[in-house]
Lab assay of single mutants.
Amino acid sequence: TFVALYDYESRTETDLSFKKGERLQIVNNTEGDWWLAHSLTTGQTGYIPSNYVAP
């Protein structure tokens, strides 16, 4: 799992909003700078900017 370093507000319907400190499970990280992730807090799935999270 990864932890959010910053808050992120989604800009498209495929993005995932999250708050700093939220735990995220990475589903697919082969898309370059945008990873498909599942929030362990909200249960939602969407794309996140990879530079906003850390292991």
Rank of each mutant, 00 (worst) to 15 (best):
L24W: 02
A4I: 03
W35F: 06
P55S: 10
G46T: 01
W34Y: 13
Y52A: 15
H38T: 15
H38C: 14
E22K: 00
V53W: 05
T12I: 11
R11A: 13
I26T: 03
Y47L: 09
L36D: 01
N51Q: 13
Q25L: 15
S10Q: 07
S39D: 04
N29C: 14
G46D: 00
G32Q: 12
T45M: 12
T42N: 06
E22Y: 01
L24E: 00
G43W: 04
S50N: 07
S17L: 03
E22C: 04
D33P: 10
G32K: 14
Y52G: 08
A37G: 05
N29F: 15
A54F: 09
S50W: 06
T14H: 14
L5F: 03
F2N: 01
L40A: 07
E22F: 01
G32A: 14
L36S: 03
Q44A: 11
T12M: 11
S10M: 06
Q44F: 09
N29A: 15
G46Y: 00
T42M: 03
V53A: 05
V3P: 02
S10V: 04
Q44I: 08
S10F: 03
Q25H: 13
E9L: 08
L5N: 03
H38Q: 14
D33H: 12
L5Y: 04
L40S: 06
I48K: 00
N28I: 11
G32R: 12
S17V: 05
K19F: 06
L36A: 03
E13W: 06
Y47E: 03
T30I: 11
P49C: 08
E13F: 07
Y52R: 08
L16R: 02
G32L: 11
S17N: 08
Y52S: 15
R11N: 13
F18G: 00
S17M: 05
V53K: 01
Q44N: 12
Y8T: 01
S50T: 06
S10A: 15
L24V: 05
S10G: 15
T30F: 10
T42D: 03
E13A: 12
L36E: 05
W35N: 02
L40T: 07
S10E: 04
A54T: 13
H38G: 04
P55G: 07
L40Q: 08
A4D: 01
F18V: 09
Y8I: 01
D7I: 01
E31K: 13
D33L: 10
L5D: 03
N51L: 08
K20F: 05
I48S: 00
N28P: 06
T42Y: 02
Y47R: 10
N51G: 12
S39M: 03
E22V: 02
A4V: 11
G43I: 02
W35C: 04
I26L: 07
D15C: 11
G46N: 01
Y52Q: 06
L5R: 04
T45D: 07
V53R: 01
E9H: 09
P49S: 05
Q25N: 09
K19T: 07
T41R: 11
Y52D: 04
V3G: 02
D7W: 03
T42C: 03
G32T: 13
G46F: 01
A37V: 13
Q44M: 14
Y52M: 15
K20A: 12
N28W: 09
R23D: 05
A54N: 07
V27M: 14
A37M: 10
T12H: 13
A54Q: 12
K20E: 07
Y8P: 00
L16S: 03
A37N: 00
T14A: 12
T45W: 12
Q44K: 15
T1Y: 15
R23G: 05
Y52F: 13
L40N: 06
R11I: 12
T30Y: 10
R11W: 09
Y6S: 07
L5I: 10
T14Q: 12
D33Q: 11
E22Q: 06
F2S: 03
I26P: 08
E9S: 09
L36Q: 05
Y8K: 02
G46I: 01
Y52E: 03
D33A: 12
E13L: 11
A37I: 04
S17I: 04
S17A: 10
G43E: 05
L24I: 07
L5T: 04
L5E: 05
T14W: 15
K20D: 02
Y47D: 03
R23T: 14
T30Q: 14
F2P: 01
T41M: 11
L24Q: 00
G32F: 10
G43D: 06
I48W: 00
N29I: 15
G43Q: 06
D7R: 02
P49N: 09
L40P: 10
G43N: 09
Y6W: 12
G46C: 02
A54K: 12
D7M: 02
S10Y: 03
Q44D: 09
E31L: 14
